[in-house]
Computed example of a mutant assay.
Amino acid sequence: MSAEGEAIRSNDYRKDTTVKAPSTRPAAVLGLDVGKSSHWACLVDRDGEVLASAPVRNREAELDALFAS
């Protein structure tokens, strides 16, 4: 498997069949630091930029809202 953005070239020397490999990394990742009464949520994009970082109470409705967003 090739790295993101790496060119893949065919072994067929008769024609140029170079294509760009598709990205295999997700657009964003949600991390949770789980605690007893509350959690800390951090959303990071594929470039490593923090999109959101905030506490979330350990309540079903609040966790459902976090995952829905």
Rank of each mutant, 00 (worst) to 15 (best):
M1F: 13
M1N: 07
M1C: 07
A3F: 15
A3Y: 15
E4P: 09
E4A: 14
E4M: 12
E4D: 13
E4S: 09
G5R: 12
G5E: 10
G5W: 14
G5V: 13
E6Q: 15
A7C: 08
I8L: 15
I8Q: 15
I8K: 13
I8H: 12
I8N: 12
S10I: 06
S10K: 11
N11M: 10
D12H: 10
D12A: 12
D12V: 13
D12L: 13
D12R: 14
Y13K: 15
R14W: 12
K15D: 11
K15P: 00
D16M: 08
T17G: 10
T17K: 15
T18M: 11
T18R: 11
T18G: 08
V19C: 07
K20V: 14
K20L: 15
A21K: 09
P22V: 05
S23M: 11
S23V: 08
S23E: 12
T24I: 08
T24L: 06
R25I: 06
R25H: 11
R25V: 10
P26H: 05
P26V: 01
P26I: 05
P26C: 01
A28R: 12
A28S: 13
V29E: 03
V29T: 15
L30C: 06
L32F: 03
L32C: 03
D33S: 01
D33C: 04
D33V: 03
V34E: 03
V34K: 01
G35P: 10
G35M: 05
S37P: 00
S37H: 01
S38Y: 08
S38H: 09
S38F: 05
S38N: 06
H39A: 05
H39G: 02
H39T: 04
W40L: 09
W40M: 10
A41P: 09
A41W: 01
C42Y: 04
C42S: 12
C42R: 07
L43T: 09
L43S: 09
L43Q: 09
V44D: 09
D45W: 05
D45G: 07
R46Y: 11
R46W: 09
D47N: 13
D47G: 12
G48T: 09
E49L: 11
E49S: 10
E49R: 12
V50M: 07
L51H: 08
L51D: 05
A52P: 04
A52E: 13
S53L: 04
S53A: 10
A54N: 06
A54Y: 05
V56S: 01
R57S: 02
R59F: 01
R59H: 05
R59I: 08
E60Q: 04
A61K: 09
E62R: 01
E62Y: 00
L63T: 00
L63S: 00
L63Y: 04
L63I: 08
A65M: 01
A65D: 05
A65K: 02
L66C: 03
F67W: 10
F67D: 00
A68H: 03
A68G: 05
S69L: 01
S69W: 00
S69C: 02
